[in-house]
Every structure is written in structure tokens, then in C-alpha cells.
Design a binder for these strands. Structure first.
Lengths: 147, 147
DNA sequence: GTAACTGCAAAACTTTTGCAACCAG
DNA sequence: CTGGTTGCAAAAGTTTTGCAGTTAC
């Protein structure tokens, strides 16, 4: 029996260090998904879309593992969850402060930078005792014009 | 007692006119749910919570009808959907422009009035051709402080 | 070698739908 | 009457979980 494990390329190795840095063992599946997610521009994915993409690229992974991996990446701070629709979870590879445009018809998400003074906003909000603001999300919803 | 239909009170009658005004036949279930939703302060409910409340008040209604009714009320403009969590739909009886505080631990929603200039915001956003902004939602997320 | 991870299928949830029975007008 | 509504159960869609087998180290 020969070793069927794929050769680790330099890029995958960089991925491995990133995963180790956040306490995740760099397994084949995690490396492959991280490669799809983080090797180019910022992206917005759902578990389903990432699963299809992985499969199309010949990555052998199950949908359950994609779900688990997305949540692990989220918990590790590698991804942000974007909540624009009740019934589907979106994940954003851009973790810096920003907001979203959401096309309600196509389900497509776009990043948008809004110069909202979050500090000012926080001061305006009457935060209940024992609570703190963990985030402020702004969603601009889009529809077909003339509708 | 022969006729088991509940007597229509003045309040319920007002409800009936409201329902008729938006094109919905004022059935017993819709009147009862509308009574729970609109007779007091502004409220935030889920299908499940409203179903339990109705049942506790002796209203005979099925969960499916609660879902359908909430959606009909939403389509009629009597309710607004609030999207704060992927996996659960919330409905808000306050339909005027306002935003929300969402306690991620308890799932509780609170209205918050933010003096956000939505017009200004709209102008900052680069809206794709053929699209218009259908809404801007701001969610301030809360967590236990010291966490 | 061993604990962490994966895959699969099943379960858990939320929400929608098909259809026979029921009810408002 | 008659079409709009409802209830129930079943289906559909998304996400989580249990567990046997595999993999990273």
C-alpha cells in the first residue's frame, strides 16, 4: 500500500500554520476548505455552497464536516457569521468591521463599508445592566427596482 | 349551550374591521391572534411563542395556522419580520422605522430608536443597477458583560 | 498509540404544504 | 351554498449529533 495522502504544497503549509495558530489540527478537509475560503478575495459562503464548491474541486468532504468546519472557523475567529435571512447561515471571510448589502431575490451578499460611528451608536443605546454590546450589524436590503 | 361560537366583543369587532381592511377574512383564529398581538404594547413574537400563548389562553389554533397567520399579517403590513438569528423568525408588532437590540443568550428582542439618517445611508451605498433599497436593518447584539 | 477528526445516517428543528373538513358571508 | 380557512400530518429544508472508523502527530 502506497501513501495516498496528497503532497503538502507551500500554500497548504501556510494554511496549516494558520490552523495550528487557532488550535485546530490541520486535517486534509480543513486545509482544503481553508484553501477555498482564504486563498483569494473576501468571500461569502453558505455550508451548501462551500460543499458544492469543494466537491466540484475534487475535495472529498461531507456536508456535515463542512458545517462543523465553518462553525469551528467561526469560533476561531477566522470567519464571521452574517445574519440576513432566517433559515440560512452565511459566513464571511472578511472579519474586519464592515456591513452588508443583501439581495433578497438572489440571496447574494456584498460587503459595504459604512462610516457608521459605532462608538457613538453604542453610547446612544441603553444597554441593560450586566450586558455589553457584542456587535452591531447593519444590513441594507435590496430588491428589484419598480417593485 | 348550543352555539359554541364566542360572543364578539367590541374589541374583537375593532379587530375584525382591521382584518377586513387589509383583505383578510376575520376568522376566529385570526381574531384571537390579532387580539393577543395588538391589544397592548408593541410585541416581539415567534410562531412558537405565539402558539404557546394562544394555547395557554384557551385559543384553539394549530401551529401551522399560527405560521400562516403571521405571514399573512406580515404581507398585509400589520407585522414586520425581524431578522436577528438564522434559524428562527421573529415578528414585531411595531411597523414604524426603528431598530433592534438582540440578546444572544436569551433570544429576547427590544426595540431601539436610533437616530440614523437612513437617507444619508442610502446615498452612501452603491446600489446596483436595477435594484433599490427595500430596507435598512440595524441589530445591536448583546451578551453577558465580562464574556 | 491515542486523541482528534471525519463520514454517514439519523435526529432535531423550524417552516411550508396538501388535502379533507369546516366556517364566514 | 361556496370559496376562503383551518387542522393535521406529512414533507421539505437546514443544521446538529452519535458513533464507528480514520488520521494526525
Amino acid at each position: 500500500m502506497t501513501d495516498t495522502r496528497p503532497t503538502i504544497t507551500a500554500q497548504e503549509d501556510r494554511g496549516a500554520s494558520h490552523l495550528r495558530a487557532v488550535g485546530l489540527r490541520p486535517t486534509q478537509q480543513r486545509l482544503a476548505l481553508a484553501g477555498l475560503l482564504f486563498s483569494g478575495e473576501d468571500r461569502h459562503v453558505t455550508a451548501e455552497s462551500l460543499y458544492e464548491e469543494a466537491t466540484a474541486h475534487g475535495v472529498k468532504v461531507s456536508l456535515a464536516t463542512v458545517y462543523n468546519t465553518l462553525n469551528q472557523f467561526k469560533d476561531a475567529g477566522l470567519l464571521r457569521e452574517v445574519i440576513v435571512h432566517s433559515g440560512k447561515s452565511y459566513y464571511d471571510t472578511k472579519t474586519e468591521a464592515h456591513h452588508h448589502l443583501y439581495d433578497e431575490e438572489s440571496g447574494r451578499i456584498q460587503d459595504v463599508h459604512l462610516e457608521v460611528d459605532e462608538e457613538e451608536l453604542r453610547q446612544k443605546v441603553d444597554v441593560p445592566a450586566g450586558k455589553r454590546i457584542s456587535g452591531v450589524d447593519i444590513v441594507v436590503r435590496l430588491r428589484q427596482s419598480g417593485n
